[in-house]
Computed example of a mutant assay.
Amino acid sequence: MPGPAAEGAAPAHLPDAPASRLWRRLPASWTPYVQLARLDRPAGWQLLLAPCLSSVCLAAIRRLETPNYLLLALFFVGAVAMRGAGSTFNDLIDRKIDAQVARTAGRPLPSGRVSPRNAAIFMAVQALAGLAVLLSLNGFAIRLGLLSLVPVAIYPFLKRFTSWPQAALGLAFSWGALMGWAAQAGGLAAPAYWLYASCIAWTIGYDTIYAIQDRGDDVAAGVKSTALLFGDNVQLAVALFYLASVLCAEAALVTAGAGVVAHIGLVAFALHLARQIRRLDDADEAEALKLFRSNGLAGFILFAGLLGENLLFYLVR
């Protein structure tokens, strides 16, 4: 795969990526691939990973056992790899639309710094890394993981036809809530479905916040989003989705038999979401990006409560 140096100079960072000295220390030829994989935007893999980790711990609570810590490590590798593969696929599909949006015009594909062929090769390499993680799981989890390719594949196309692409993203990004349980328990149960529903509602909420940045450009490009659909009521809509997320998470904890420590984590998660809603100003694009990024922490708050419950069980058993 020829280096991007032959395909154009790479900017230090993109508008929606936090400035980081880490990536600037890498060879310049690597930068476009770092950007394709969204390694410079860690919120994405964090949001993909958190449901996996929470689900593993929730299954362990239900089964009165300690979580498989190797699974937690494997899901970290898988989340980073599949986030990168999915983002590269999304950029391949959307490269013409991205060229019309100020925030995304500098991305490697629309800017011409990486060719579609090289991007496809890079996507395949990341997907193979994710596949290696998947094949290390039990048979049920492998089959379930393969099903996740359906929402991943359809998501990039929906913004052309419906105002609800965020719902498809929710189906894809929340799949870890099923995968973690399946990997720990070898099947699925009601708490996993409740956690999946919670994560879908959460994803629709935070991705609506993210889409606030692009409303003007989306109209010009002829694509749709929930941020455009909700208009002046976007703050109320996000609040309702966040409320649904908290209620479904509570149902997951109750049906799994979770105790006080897990519920403390849920309360902290709910307070974090409430803080986002209070700060949400749908006319402030910079604030919307900050609030979106903060959800990386929100997901790990819920996970921390569940892991704390697991550790408490280990200490007192």
Results as ranks from 00 to 15, higher is better:
residue 184 Q to S: 03
residue 164 W to Q: 14
residue 214 D to P: 06
residue 211 A to G: 06
residue 241 F to Y: 15
residue 220 A to K: 15
residue 237 A to P: 09
residue 264 I to F: 13
residue 221 A to C: 11
residue 235 Q to K: 15
residue 231 G to Y: 05
residue 251 A to N: 13
residue 162 T to Y: 14
residue 264 I to H: 08
residue 216 G to V: 09
residue 171 L to E: 03
residue 230 F to L: 06
residue 231 G to L: 07
residue 214 D to M: 01
residue 183 A to T: 00
residue 200 I to W: 10
residue 210 Y to C: 04
residue 207 D to W: 02
residue 165 P to C: 00
residue 209 I to Y: 13
residue 216 G to P: 03
residue 240 L to K: 14
residue 196 Y to W: 07
residue 182 A to N: 02
residue 202 W to N: 04
residue 262 A to D: 02
residue 176 G to V: 03
residue 170 G to Y: 02
residue 264 I to S: 08
residue 229 L to P: 07
residue 207 D to S: 00
residue 191 P to E: 04
residue 186 G to I: 02
residue 217 D to N: 09
residue 194 W to A: 02
residue 235 Q to L: 15
residue 198 S to K: 05
residue 187 G to V: 14
residue 259 G to L: 06
residue 256 A to M: 05
residue 189 A to M: 06
residue 253 L to H: 00
residue 185 A to Q: 01
residue 209 I to T: 07
residue 169 L to C: 03
residue 198 S to I: 05
residue 201 A to D: 05
residue 200 I to V: 08
residue 196 Y to D: 07
residue 208 T to E: 07
residue 218 D to Y: 06
residue 214 D to L: 01
residue 255 T to G: 10
residue 218 D to K: 05
residue 224 K to C: 11
residue 163 S to H: 14
residue 237 A to N: 10
residue 253 L to W: 00
residue 169 L to I: 08
residue 217 D to K: 11
residue 166 Q to H: 09
residue 249 A to S: 05
residue 184 Q to P: 09
residue 163 S to C: 14
residue 233 N to I: 12
residue 246 V to P: 13
residue 232 D to C: 13
residue 212 I to R: 12
residue 244 A to R: 09
residue 256 A to P: 01
residue 208 T to Y: 03
residue 228 L to Y: 12
residue 164 W to D: 14
residue 177 A to P: 14
residue 241 F to C: 09
residue 225 S to M: 08
residue 247 L to W: 11
residue 220 A to G: 14
residue 178 L to C: 04
residue 224 K to S: 13
residue 228 L to P: 08
residue 212 I to Q: 13
residue 228 L to S: 10
residue 260 V to G: 13
residue 188 L to G: 09
residue 244 A to M: 12
residue 170 G to H: 01
residue 174 S to E: 08
residue 244 A to L: 12
residue 193 Y to G: 07
residue 199 C to L: 12
residue 264 I to T: 05
residue 244 A to Y: 07
residue 249 A to P: 03
residue 197 A to I: 06
residue 184 Q to C: 04
residue 221 A to L: 09
residue 222 G to N: 07
residue 198 S to V: 03
residue 189 A to H: 02
residue 189 A to E: 01
residue 247 L to V: 04
residue 240 L to F: 07
residue 206 Y to L: 07
residue 189 A to K: 01
residue 243 L to K: 14
residue 196 Y to V: 12
residue 193 Y to F: 14
residue 207 D to R: 02
residue 227 A to S: 03
residue 220 A to Y: 12
residue 234 V to L: 15
residue 165 P to I: 01
residue 207 D to E: 03
residue 253 L to P: 00
residue 248 C to G: 11
residue 197 A to M: 00
residue 168 A to E: 10
residue 162 T to C: 14
residue 260 V to M: 15
residue 200 I to S: 06
residue 246 V to D: 03
residue 186 G to M: 02
residue 252 A to Y: 02
residue 211 A to E: 01
residue 233 N to V: 13
residue 232 D to Q: 15
residue 222 G to W: 04
residue 219 V to F: 01
residue 216 G to S: 12
residue 196 Y to A: 11
residue 235 Q to E: 15
residue 171 L to N: 02
residue 168 A to N: 08
residue 163 S to Q: 14
residue 242 Y to W: 11
residue 198 S to G: 06
residue 169 L to Y: 10
